[in-house]
């Protein structure tokens, strides 16, 4: 695989949410607004890239039996750093994402990439893999958030996009059931498209 492929595979072909079906918890929870999806995507990408980098560097020194605890400590460290940074520089995002920021630790995508990729590959491909997967995750989040924000709130990224007089948002999409339905339909769509080809 070329470096470009290592980077690009996570965005569409092996999209962590829509194809590999991981990380549903943050995907469903924060996608009420596009801005929250972007914030969560950026935070997760940061953690993915830095933990992939750190693990690619140290993996060969870690004995097999303490592998997972070591990875968890490394990931949790970067999550804490991100949490502190968000608290310091974007209190509004901190209030919106709340408990789902520390929960990045248990996002299966991150431990999954550490195990499946970073522990077996050199530094540069690992960084690109993390970046690609992070962007793919963000991409999936933004699509779902766009559906939910446009129908559930009548806006996109805070701008009023539905210019119809008397439009009343379909609250269903802003609520938990709308999140489940939206993601279910998205994944079905991706799978139907794949079958067609």
């Amino acid at each position: 695989m070329t470096l470009w492929q290592e980077f690009s595979k996570g965005i569409v072909r092996e999209n962590p949410v829509l194809k590999i079906l991981l990380g549903f918890c943050p995907t469903l929870a924060v996608t009420t607004l596009v801005i929250n999806a972007l914030g969560m995507g950026a935070a997760t990408t940061f953690v993915l890239v830095s933990s992939n980098l750190a693990i690619a560097l140290v993996a060969r020194f870690i004995p097999e039996n303490v592998r997972i605890p070591c990875y968890i400590v490394i990931i949790a460290t970067f999550v804490t750093v991100v949490e502190l940074l968000i608290q310091a520089f974007s209190p509004a995002l901190n209030a919106a994402l709340g408990i789902y920021i520390p929960l990045i630790v248990v996002n299966c995508i991150i431990l999954g990439r550490a195990e499946a990729f970073a522990s077996k590959n050199p530094v540069l491909p690992s960084i690109l893999d993390g970046l690609g997967m992070g962007l793919g995750f963000t991409f999936a989040l933004v699509i779902l958030a766009s559906i939910r924000e446009i129908f559930g709130n009548g806006t996109w990224l805070g701008f009023n996009v539905i210019g119809i007089e008397g439009f009343s948002p379909i609250l269903f999409f802003a609520l938990p059931p709308g999140a489940f339905l939206g993601l279910g339909l998205l994944i079905a769509l991706v799978s139907a498209y794949q079958r067609k080809r």
Binding site: L21, L175, P176, P177, G178, A179, F180, L181, L183, G184, L185, I187, A188, L189, S191, A192, R195
Partner: peptide, 18 residues
């Protein structure tokens, strides 16, 4: 329907239960 088998239908059931 084929594309809905597995995870998508699970999410749609979850939607109704939610």
């Amino acid at each position: 329907p084929l594309p809905f088998r597995g995870v998508p239908i699970a999410l749609i059931v979850a939607s109704i239960l939610a």
